[in-house]
Design a protein around this nucleic acid. Structure first.
Length: 258
DNA sequence: CTATCTGTTCTGAC
DNA sequence: TGTCAGAACAGATA
């Protein structure tokens, strides 16, 4: 699948009116009644460089390309603005995409990319009653895969599913139809806690993991289980385990979670 | 060197 | 329908 799925001429001369997000998809609403969808997938990043070349604002998956010279060999698109600022879209693995749709169609949710997206975890609709209602759709799923299903909850990825379940003290392998109401409350709280921590440490757009010297910041140091298999749990010192669910690495503390 | 892993999601087989 | 392996790709790590 091609990364850039529209013609340059379809956006040239238009300005960005506002930027929204649905799940993990960014929506740039343009002045020509079109909207550009950007998905960063596993390795995408956006870097906006002011005309002074001194100031950068970057977001997405951090790495050293954010601090070095631009463009890089991962740069897939470059936007040039009237004020001489430049936006780079980098994506090492080429999983990401940029598509153009009529803004009207997006607002009506007629686009396949967003029409079935579930509730945002920071919205009031993300509550215990909603979660229990969704269980009836896929009763025999495990909780880990349930949480990462974008049709149920918008925007939870592999890290936050793992981390959220640690905070909830629930094993990722638990079948959702067996989960008690009190546990759903803990899962909801745990997911929100994991997301907030992610935002605090790594989600701010102009102060990401990689600092001016190119050091990795402390963003990943707060992770409790993700990619910590074989290491001691930060709470109880038990060894963190790894299994595979839905083809994705799944990490948990066998003592803290049940 | 080989094997396996990776902040994602879509497709085709059953 | 639901579930699952495999695919798209470019590395990094053991």
């Amino acid at each position: 699948m091609k990364i850039i799925q529209f013609e340059t001429k379809d956006i040239i001369g238009s300005s960005i009116e506002d930027i929204k997000r649905r799940a993990k998809i960014l929506i740039f609403n343009l002045s020509n009644n079109k909207s550009m969808l950007i998905h960063l997938k596993m390795t995408g990043q956006l870097i906006w460089e002011k005309s002074s070349k001194k100031k950068r604002v970057s977001g997405g998956h951090p790495n050293f390309e954010m601090v070095g010279n631009l463009p890089t060999k991962s740069t897939r698109a470059i936007f040039y603005f009237d004020d001489k600022s430049v936006l780079y879209f980098n994506d090492q693995r080429k999983f990401g995409y940029m598509k153009l749709y009529d803004t009207e169609k997006i607002k009506k949710r007629e686009i396949k990319e967003i029409k079935d997206i579930g509730v945002d975890p920071f919205s009031k609709k993300f509550n215990v009653e909603y979660l229990i209602r969704q269980v009836k759709r896929f009763p025999k799923r495990n909780i880990k895969q349930f949480l990462t299903d974008q049709e149920i909850i918008a925007g939870i990825g592999n890290i936050y599913s793992n981390e959220g379940l640690f905070y909830a003290r629930i094993l990722p392998t638990r079948i959702i139809s067996n989960i008690l109401k009190s546990e759903w409350q803990k899962i909801k709280d745990g997911v929100i806690k994991a997301l907030k921590l992610g935002l605090k440490y790594g989600g701010t757009s102009d102060n990401t993991f990689v600092n001016a010297e190119g050091d990795m910041g402390e963003a990943q140091n707060h992770l409790m289980v993700y990619r910590r298999d074989g290491e001691p749990c930060k709470k109880c010192k038990s060894i963190i385990k790894r299994v595979v669910l839905g083809g994705r690495g799944t990490f948990f503390c066998p003592k803290c979670q049940e």
